[in-house]
Amino acid sequence: MKRIFITGTAGFIGYHLAQLLLDEGHTVAGFDGMTDYYDVTLKQRRHAMLLQSGGFTATEAMLEDRAALDAAVDAFAPDVIVHLAGQAGVRYSLENPRAYVDANLVGTFNVMEAARRHAVGHLMMASTSSVYGANTEMPFRETDKADTPMTIYAATKKATEAMGHSYAHLYDLPVTMFRFFTVYGPWGRPDMALFKFVKATLEGQPIDVYNHGEMYRDFTYVEDLVRAIRLLMEGAVPTRAEDGVVPEGDSLSPVAPFRVVNIGNSKSERLMDFIEAIEAALGQKTTRNLMDIQPGDVPATWADASLLERLTGYRPHTDIREGVARFVAWYREYYGV
């Protein structure tokens, strides 16, 4: 069994990953800043559930607080670090870009330094499909150039990929970056479209539909996503390419134990179909407020997940109707509606 340090365990994805690992019998140390970007009560509930396991401990502090992070990592002495914490949200990055620099750049640097000092067996860090930016050739492949970020959020995530590569090269530190594609599911964030659409519809309010509904996303169910991370954790630890030769289609660096992996459902779904899945799960129609596309938004995302499947034998597969229904069931139970 492994000792796994996870940043962002009070967050949506971090909570689900920690629960999966605890269920398998691993020892998990969580680290979360409990910021008020969204309802802190939701974060507290996630941590409270994890703390029901004897294998889980938690530290509440900011990533930018290097002393607090170092103390937590030093006390735990992890085998693996999974860095999921950070400032999320494409649209919020238009309002408060400094939060992204502080959390995603400074915070990630502190995590990498801790991983280097402890020479962990695997450093795994979250990136995003947003790094593909203005790319139009789809599905997106890890070997595609990703040099046209459309928001400061995407830019900070691309920067952490570059930072991770440098640490992998300089310190022989195995690093895997995973690019997430529109994750959704129970215990999701209130700023995410699914959460907002369900809440508004149940309250009899209209939903804002950008680009007049002509948006396409590779919706990825959260339990599929964390299963993929779990399989990458031990089954696909990057090693230096032999003689600098990288297998065709692999994103492995020729000069470092570093790899980027897409985690997506491999299916670009029309936003209107997603909304219809919400209506089916709720048993009622939405009222749609059709709007222009917002600055920084891209009209479509679509993951090529063949590298993930090649490395792990697994690819996300949950259908949006099934995943949305599970979210709606959770929402009704959690909020008593």
Rank of each mutant, 00 (worst) to 15 (best):
Glu64Ser: 14
Arg259Ser: 03
Asp224Trp: 06
Lys158Tyr: 08
Ala67Phe: 03
His83Asp: 07
Val131Thr: 15
Val209Glu: 10
Thr27Glu: 13
Lys285Ile: 14
Asn211Ile: 10
Val175Tyr: 06
Trp187Met: 02
Gly107Cys: 02
Phe140Gln: 12
Arg66Asp: 04
Ala126Asp: 02
Thr143Trp: 06
Tyr92Ser: 14
Leu231Lys: 05
Glu137Asp: 11
Glu269Thr: 15
Arg46Ser: 07
His26Ser: 11
Ala71Val: 00
Leu194Ser: 03
His169Glu: 13
Asp70Phe: 10
Arg179Tyr: 05
Tyr37Leu: 04
Leu271Ala: 13
Leu231Val: 00
Tyr314Pro: 03
Lys267Cys: 12
Glu113Asn: 09
Asp191Asn: 13
Met125Asp: 05
Ala134Asn: 08
Leu20Cys: 00
Ala68Arg: 10
Ala71Asn: 03
Ala18Trp: 01
Val255Lys: 13
Tyr100Glu: 13
Ala325Tyr: 02
Asp172Gly: 05
Leu69Ser: 10
Arg310Leu: 07
Ala18Asp: 10
Thr201Lys: 10
Leu282Val: 06
Gly133Met: 06
Thr156Ile: 08
Glu223Phe: 01
Tyr314Ser: 07
Val28Ala: 08
Ala72Arg: 15
Ala61Pro: 14
Val82Trp: 07
Ala10Thr: 11
Phe258Trp: 04
His83Ser: 13
Arg3Glu: 01
Asp224Thr: 02
Met124Trp: 01
Gly188Ile: 00
Glu333Leu: 14
Asp65Arg: 14
Ser166Leu: 15
Leu94Lys: 04
Met192Thr: 11
Val28Met: 07
Ala10Asp: 04
His122Thr: 03
Ala168Met: 06
Ser129Asp: 13
Asn110Tyr: 09
Met150Leu: 15
Arg326Asn: 02
Asp191Thr: 13
Ile81Gly: 10
Pro247Ser: 12
Glu203Phe: 00
Gly86Cys: 04
Thr57Met: 13
Ala146Gln: 11
Leu84Cys: 01
Gly54Glu: 10
Thr143Gly: 04
Pro238Gln: 02
Gly244Ser: 08
Arg141Asn: 03
Arg270Phe: 15
Glu333Gly: 05
Gln44His: 03
Val120Gln: 03
Arg46Met: 11
Ser268Glu: 08
Thr128Leu: 00
Val28Thr: 12
Pro149Arg: 04
Pro97Ile: 05
Thr286Asn: 11
Ala58Val: 13
Ile293His: 09
Thr35Tyr: 12
Leu17Cys: 06
Leu50Arg: 07
Leu231Cys: 06
Leu225Asn: 01
Gly86Tyr: 11
Ile278Tyr: 03
Ala88Ile: 13
Asn104Leu: 00
Gly54His: 06
Pro97Val: 05
Ile320Lys: 12
Ala303Val: 04
Ala85Ile: 03
Ala119Ile: 02
Ser166Val: 12
Met150Pro: 01
Glu269Cys: 13
Gln87Thr: 14
Tyr216Ala: 11
Ala325Lys: 11
Arg189Lys: 10
Asp273Leu: 07
Asp218Arg: 09
Tyr210Asp: 07
His47Asn: 11
Asp39Trp: 04
Val40Gln: 15
Asp208Cys: 05
Glu322Arg: 08
Thr108His: 14
Ala193His: 02
Glu142Ser: 07
Ala325Cys: 09
Asp79Ala: 11
Gly264Glu: 11
Ala134Tyr: 04
Val73Arg: 12
Tyr38Ser: 00
Arg310Gly: 05
Thr312Asp: 10
Gly235Thr: 03
Ala10Phe: 07
Ala88Leu: 12
Asp147Ile: 09
Ala134Gln: 08
Ala236Ser: 07
Leu51Lys: 15
Val73Ala: 08
Pro316Ser: 05
Glu309Arg: 14
His16Thr: 12
His169Met: 09
Gly249Met: 03
Leu69Gly: 04
